[in-house]
Amino acid sequence: MKILEVKNLNVEINGIHILNDINFEVERGEILAIIGPNGAGKTILLKSLLGLIDYQGEIKWNKIYGEKIKIGYVPQRMDIETDIPLSVEEFLNLSGDSSKQKIKEAIKAVQLDEKILKSGFGEISIGQRQRILVAWAILGNPQVLLFDEPTADIDIAGQESIYKMLHKLHRDLNLSIILISHDLNVVFRYAHKAICLNRKKICEGSPKEILNTENLLELYGGEKAFYHHDHHH
């Protein structure tokens, strides 16, 4: 069952074409990784999926059992002051009226201790904050989670455990996950499908099929370097 169909997606910001004719689909329960260099339009793609920015083309979220699909979003990073007077518990309550019990369950699902609820949202570590953002997202009972480089600012051990947690959430809650990642290891290990993006879709398929030298060179600009080399020889 397809939960998302994207057809001829184009995004232009201030006269610059960020995304050109993007087409892809996501199945229920699938983990889709979006990879690409900086400035490739990965975050813009996620934001258009969320309806946060204007786009041309079609983005169709299909209903599940006749109900509108719920999407949880975990942004790349948040700039908040370390002394913001907002506790973790209050933050988790901002999205609506979640019961204390539900909040505790969400905290457990992201493998944190309940004690963190009383901490300040600005004083917890970045890794913890990322998990709290995940908890925030799953409090809305989503069927899909969108992650924008969930581990950008976290050390390697922390990254590993975040991906393990995501994998577990995916299994336990039967979630579809669309994630942006720089880490090809992660993509290999956890994603069912990957899309290589650099302003346009360069490749799509299972990570084993498509993550080969040729595609990666094209994606990360290797070929361009060769081209210049040839040109000047």
Partner: peptide, 12 residues
């Protein structure tokens, strides 16, 4: 408060 913590989250 949510708008002030993160516009993206609140919009989402």
């Amino acid at each position: 408060a949510l708008n002030m913590v993160s516009q993206e989250l609140s919009q989402s």
